[in-house]
């Protein structure tokens, strides 16, 4: 666990259990639906709250209005 703004160790390795990736511009929600995140910088790691992974939220496109 790193604090915000802290540098990761150079030899840090991604846990294969959390290597699903996080994609630019996608939304991720917690199982209970009480947390929603928008990915503004993508990466190889996946998101979780404690041991509970966030899942990709299905987009419901709205008609283009402007």
């Amino acid at each position: 666990m790193l604090a915000s703004g802290e540098e990761a160790a150079a030899d840090a390795a991604l846990d294969p259990a959390a290597a699903g990736g996080t994609a630019l511009g996608k939304r991720y929600i917690s199982a209970g639906g009480d947390l929603e995140l928008l990915c503004t910088k993508p990466g190889k790691g996946s998101l979780a709250v404690g041991a509970s992974p966030l899942v990709l939220k299905e987009a419901k496109p709205l008609p283009s209005s402007d």
């Binding site: 630019l24 511009g25 928008l38 987009a59 496109p61 709205l62 209005s65």
Partner: peptide, 9 residues
């Protein structure tokens, strides 16, 4: 924008 547009759609 976040509420009405899907990124890269």
């Amino acid at each position: 924008i976040f509420g009405s547009i899907e990124f890269g759609a």
